[in-house]
């Protein structure tokens, strides 16, 4: 699975355990706050992705960045996943 697929999978997983109804379909330009996950759900998503991918970009970044859309969220993870692979 690539990073985007892992994120999609994690979103469904988190939505299920936090009783949230995800918007269908989640597209690149879907605004995160309208995706169906609430703020607690996003905290859980970041924790789930840290377990799955071994990275937490939002801790590693020097300046806080808050992605607005699903596409922006995925790109942040792709960028840090590449950096972490380069560093190994």
């Amino acid at each position: 699975m690539n990073t985007e697929q892992i994120i999609r999978e994690a979103m469904y997983q988190v939505a299920e355990i936090s009783d949230c109804q995800l918007m269908e379909p989640i597209r690149e330009d879907t605004v995160l706050l309208q995706s169906g996950l609430d703020s607690l759900g996003f905290a859980m998503l970041v924790a789930q992705l840290e377990e799955d991918l071994g990275i937490d970009p939002f801790t590693e970044m020097a300046i806080p960045v808050y992605p607005n859309t699903f596409g922006e969220f995925v790109r942040i993870y792709q960028q840090y996943a590449e950096q972490s692979q380069d560093g190994q």
Binding site: V14, I17, S18, L40, A43, M44, A47, E50
Partner: peptide, 9 residues
């Protein structure tokens, strides 16, 4: 550590 607890509900 809270984030992991949330995943466990």
């Amino acid at each position: 550590l809270l984030r992991s607890m949330l995943l466990n509900r």
